[in-house]
């Protein structure tokens, strides 16, 4: 299937299109099976505490708290933990573990400071540079793209992301094809 349009009818269906796009992030990665060790993990799950700290720091830098929840307040790190622990197979888990190790290393600054130990503004500066490099194609990091896509998806599918940051109407009641943006200024969550 073409990635620009997966199948008929899907054109109209945001959430559904999503699951297919999100599925791409399961591709690639190393083939070695997983050791499964979770030493130092605060919560039970595949990712250890160190990995969870990096996930939270990067996710929150991509989507910070503003007048609405950021990625951490919306529960994104836990969603990713559950995804890796309960959904991902060994290949997926290893891909994420390797990817996080490489990302953590790549984000260490010139002074040897790790991303997690930076201040929020230092994090934003560091990640912004890295993100630009990835999207400009000068930094080859497919994992980061997958990571970011998953964070974004998890955020906008969360209750806070869908109902506070965006607009969500579980039962709209009617369809109106053309309304002023000023009356409905936010992106629909679904």
């Amino acid at each position: 299937m073409q990635d620009f349009m997966l199948q008929r009818r899907q054109v109209f269906q945001g959430l559904i299109a999503l699951s297919a796009v999100g599925g791409l992030s399961a591709c690639g990665g190393a083939e070695a099976p997983v050791s499964g060790q979770v030493s130092g993990s605060a919560a039970p799950g595949y990712f250890n505490a160190q990995e969870m700290a990096l996930i939270a720091a990067v996710a929150q830098t991509i989507i910070p708290q503003t007048e609405t929840a950021g990625a951490v307040q919306a529960g994104v790190p836990k969603t990713l933990q559950d995804l890796a622990t309960d959904w991902g197979n060994g290949e997926f888990q290893q891909y994420w573990r390797d990817g996080l190790v490489a990302l953590g290393t790549a984000l260490i600054n010139e002074d040897g400071m790790t991303f997690v130990s930076m201040s929020p503004s230092e994090r934003e500066m560091a990640l912004s540079t890295y993100d630009s490099g990835v999207f400009a194609g000068t930094i080859p990091d497919g994992f980061y793209r997958d990571f970011k896509a998953t964070v974004v998806q998890a955020y906008y599918m969360s209750e806070a992301g869908a109902t506070e940051e965006l607009a969500y109407e579980p039962v709209p009641g009617e369809w109106i094809g053309c309304v002023p943006l000023s009356e409905f200024p936010k992106t629909w969550a679904t």
Binding site: G14, A17, P64, T187, W188
Partner: peptide, 25 residues
């Protein structure tokens, strides 16, 4: 229809501006 937030999954940017862009159709 107007593109929604899932296009943000593949877009450049981080931080408050990136978040604001996702909120706008």
């Amino acid at each position: 229809t107007r593109e929604r937030w899932w296009t943000s999954m593949g877009k450049e940017g981080v931080g408050a501006d990136f978040k604001a862009a996702g909120r706008t159709p």
